[in-house]
């Protein structure tokens, strides 16, 4: 089970993800912002919160870590921060690297703060920090 001994644990980067014009357009449209010219054309940037597509892909490594005993389906996202060095752009080949920053276990619940670094060609694009509330079924802890 996850505990404060796991603070600082970092997982290998995700397989590189290439940001495509089609995915940027699809994401902008899903936010009701498909007509925004910033998200189209040769100089297109991605909507800022597109970063979550990359950062959440890195969550799998933590949920697959059997030692932590976590399940995505028992997890609630309680807060989210993004800090961008520059916008994500079409053509960026992005990796996401997850680190466990904080763990606070209380009874059958844990507040877990994770930080995901998004990098392209060695440059930091964005740091995405999330607090997750995980709850174990009470019977598992009996």
């Amino acid at each position: 089970m996850i505990s404060d001994t796991h603070i600082g644990r970092t997982y290998p980067p995700t397989v590189p993800y290439v940001v495509s014009a089609a995915k940027v357009a699809e994401f902008a449209t899903a936010l009701g912002d498909g007509a925004n010219p910033a998200y189209a054309g040769p100089d297109a940037v991605a909507p800022p919160t597109f970063a979550v597509v990359l950062s959440s892909a890195a969550w799998a490594a933590m949920f697959d870590d059997a030692e932590l005993d976590l399940s995505l389906s028992r997890t609630v996202h309680t807060d989210q921060r993004f800090a961008w060095q520059r916008p994500l752009r079409v053509g960026d080949e992005v990796t996401a690297t997850l680190s466990i920053e904080k763990v606070r276990v209380r009874g059958t619940s844990a507040f877990i703060t994770i930080s995901v670094a998004l990098d392209a060609s060695g440059d930091r694009l964005c740091d995405a920090t999330s607090t997750l509330l995980h709850t174990w079924p009470a019977k598992d802890l009996a």
Partner: peptide, 18 residues
Amino acid sequence: VTDWCGDPARVLSYYVRF
């Protein structure tokens, strides 16, 4: 924010609690 400033590339950080 992006409708107001006209350029999503100007957004430096964003935080919310759900």
